[in-house]
């Protein structure tokens, strides 16, 4: 009778996944637990070391040239974050691009299925032939990374230069970066440079509270925003895009 009870209980715990979690926490099987979370073999990602960024906008220009992005809209841009009062001041640079999120809100709202996360490499793409330009994904992205292309009438954003990457070439913005601030690669391959850099440096992602699990990481990013002015702190964010206020 006693045995029965305990075995049922263990079954029950098993079903809840409690025992697996407990082992993982104890540290005996961390890699298995990790592998269980990451289903994809390849997940392309980017790491931006803001200490090496000079705010030169070469990436924005390269990106724009690569895709012939129309005037007034951008797939990527560099924000300047200025703060402090003289003489204690600082200016940091925050290059922005699509995060190719693990849980992309843009995908879950798309009514046509035009936006999806590719199984093979985790890149979030838009099928131009299917997109009707409803703008729902543009509203849903917590990073404001999407725009409506005024020429094609479809949603557009960074696609990690999949046409270059599939040929073994680095994305245009990475290739052009004068400070080598951008590292691109497969985050699921522990031997890749990006995986090693992320493992050995303090990194952060943007708006982690949104639960989208971004795949663009930053080293030494300044997360300050203009709302801090309400606390009598001088902060100015220059977005360098048509949308002047970050949202």
């Amino acid at each position: 009778m006693k045995t029965n009870v305990s075995s049922t209980r263990r079954d029950f715990l098993h079903k809840l996944g409690v025992s697996a979690a407990a082992t993982a926490v104890a540290g005996t099987q961390p890699l298995t637990a990790h592998a269980a979370v990451r289903k994809r073999n390849i997940q392309y990602a980017m790491l931006i070391d803001t200490r090496r960024c000079t705010g030169c906008h070469a990436c924005s220009v390269a990106c724009k040239a690569e895709y012939d992005v129309p005037l007034g809209v951008n797939r990527s841009w560099v924000e300047y974050v200025e703060k402090g009062d003289y003489p204690n001041v600082t200016r940091n640079f925050l290059p922005r691009l699509c995060n190719h999120c693990d849980h992309p809100d843009c995908v879950s709202v798309c009514p046509t299925g035009a936006t999806y996360k590719r199984e093979e490499d985790g890149v979030v793409v838009i099928d131009e032939d299917v997109c009707i330009g409803c703008g729902y994904c543009i509203q849903a992205c917590p990073y404001d990374m999407r725009f409506l292309n005024p020429v094609t009438g479809t949603a557009e954003k960074c696609d990690f230069c999949e046409h270059l990457v599939s040929k073994g070439i680095q994305p245009a913005c990475v290739e052009t970066c004068i400070g080598s601030a951008r590292i691109f690669g497969d985050i699921n391959d522990p031997t890749s440079e990006i995986a090693q850099m992320i493992a050995t440096n303090p990194v952060s992602v943007l708006r982690p509270d949104k639960g989208t699990e971004p795949n663009v990481y930053y080293i030494a990013a300044d997360h300050s925003g203009e709302h801090e002015r309400q606390r009598n702190r001088y902060v100015r964010v220059t977005t360098h895009r048509k949308q002047k206020i970050r949202r």
Partner: peptide, 8 residues
């Protein structure tokens, strides 16, 4: 208001 409609 659809982007596709606006480009024809």
């Amino acid at each position: 208001e659809l982007g596709s409609f606006q480009v024809g």
